[in-house]
Design a protein around this nucleic acid. Structure first.
Lengths: 198, 198, 198, 198
DNA sequence: AAGTAATCGAGACGGTACGTCCGGTCTTCCT
DNA sequence: AGGAAGACCGGACGTACCGTCTCGATTACTT
């Protein structure tokens, strides 16, 4: 097969077992949801997946790495969203989606992953690359188009602007000092767009 | 409370050793700064403090609890700040102080503590009680007085307002997707006060 | 109690658990007999004894060390033997005893221990100290008294003499090139005592 | 053998690679000498020989088997010896040769091989077939001719007789309780030939 | 002064998971 | 049909901390 050889270099040796890869990710996701990050030990995942520990270490550098991959394997989320031309509305819709995710089991796991990332640079990198960056890029583009439309000032620091809208969600997720209500969405957007001065 | 110290029930038995308590906190802080939270194991602290593990378990429920106490023992920070009557100015000054703390070794440790708190409810509680809540109360009072002065709208959701100003600092501390520059302070305050609409 | 304090220095800390020590030795001996040295893994012994691996490592340096101790714990053998004044007879009786031991399960285990000792200096030392040396001393004394009685030449190299009598037993045990018959006893003694020249 | 090479059935498929066979034996011998039997792992040998593990397993049943073959490949020893017609002299010469071998690195390796053979029947067999048996046959023949010459009694149990001479060498090699001196040779032979009675 | 009680140090213990090594087996492609 | 490459499962290794458990020694208050 021409396509096969051109796409895959056809390396010598036994090819990686897709069966093992999937079993690991499924087992990882299961444990993550059942008992949180603490339950997702390499040993536990290996046992549940019917796989040897070495096979996991072969393909993932750390416990955190398997965890994130397992998490994203299960929560294959979409970032795409329709753009109506009204920045306030588009942002609100997106924030509502994030709030909704964060309120469920996935939110708890995400919080633990962020937590673990504080002492696992590997995991931190993966989290940025696979979770934050894609969302940032989409949001940045959204804001940029809004600027082009003249909705908001052109000299706005987009990154700070986005932080002021999204950071509170992560802050409440991790510190739990205030609830993650749906009503948050509108207030967050409204405040940064219009300010609070009387 | 006067009665508490002077009328201490004078319980029988050997009183708690102040020497041990301090040695533990010092050892904990040392290890925390040297090798991060990972290095601050109960075993390590006990060895370094010349104290038995049981003594630590006697007074602290978990590893995280000793860590926070050690951290705050070393970083005895003050929240107090002068109030000029100009909200924007007062907030900016305070944010600058936080940014400064977060940029140093203390910031790294704080990030790890927040991280660990995601899977240690005990630690999460301590962190809120001893770190976040006092700051929140001070800031809330500040904002309230500003409302009284008529600077900002009276129907502002103060908690969301404060989150939009402070959350970005914690977000950048834990996700490291953007730097913690001094310039942040002014932008953060300005945006929520005046909005970004053109 | 005076005797108690004089015998045991009364070291601080929790005293070693005699229960654990015995459980380990029993479990070790069991596994040794059931599956040979290969079955007597640290992990297996720990599991069977209801003891943690660390406890074993605390008191024994290597797998071999536990094995020998377990072996001698079970086969608490006596070296003592009556001395009739007839060297040939006394030696023959003793050799018969060794042959008998070596033919049983204990012989197989002993062979494995000797085998393992070839790549475990620790074990080699223990084997010499606890097995060979005591026997050598008893035999040496026996021969010496025979010399005193004038039975054999005073310039005999006793160690070589003993090797020529006992080494064949170990040789046949480990190489299995010839059987370990009872008849061996008499021939071995007879040959070195009288020579084989016609 | 002529017929073997010329009349080889010319089996189908790729013929066995002589290159691989030699590389394996050389690598095995190297590792054996450098780090003893423990270092001569299948994995290590394969890596060093630039050969796949399967190729080794294809031709050797166990780790021990490769080790012995590697050992004999390097130490291509000769058993042949001149026969002078004086048994005592001929034996002494041969024993001296063995003692000399045993004192060097080869002796250490041989001890480890014997050790491993205690829990590896495969290796035990190879060791008997390729090392002990040939020597035994040569020695037995030697003694038999001596009997024919009337030097020693015709009813001597040759196997026991040989054990009494050679076993001490293996005993001292494996137990290290006494040195392997050159002087041993003469004493060993002398004792069994003349007896030790005064 | 003797008794009572809480504490402290030392350290042994069962347990869980770690990350690694090696043994054998397998699968795939190349020669 | 070899053979090289290398992935895979299984089992054991030795280590690190955890949190709990004895001990004996210390240090107060109470009788």
């Amino acid at each position: 097969m021409i396509s096969a050889s051109s796409l895959a270099p056809a390396r010598p040796g036994r090819p990686r077992s897709e069966r093992a890869r999937l079993a690991i990710l499924e087992a990882g996701a299961d444990l993550l949801l059942e008992g949180g990050l603490a339950a997702a030990t390499i040993e536990g995942i290996a046992a549940r997946a019917g796989v040897s520990k070495v096979t996991i270490y072969k393909w993932w550098p750390s416990r955190g790495a398997v965890a994130v991959d397992s998490f994203f394997h299960r929560y294959r989320q979409t970032i795409s969203f329709e753009e109506t031309g009204d920045l306030a509305h588009d942002l609100t819709v997106q924030i509502l989606a994030v709030i909704n995710d964060f309120r469920g089991r996935a939110g708890e796991v995400m919080a633990e992953l962020i937590g673990q990332a504080q002492s696992d640079p590997d995991l931190a990198g993966t989290l940025r690359t696979r979770w934050l960056d894609p969302r940032r890029q989409a949001s940045t583009a959204l804001v940029r188009r809004s600027i082009d439309r003249g909705e908001i000032a052109p000299d706005v620091d987009i990154q700070v602007f986005l932080d002021q809208i999204y950071a509170p969600l992560y802050f409440r997720l991790t510190m739990r000092h205030q609830p993650l209500d749906d009503s948050l969405a509108q207030i967050l957007v409204h405040t940064v767009l219009d300010g609070v001065r009387s």
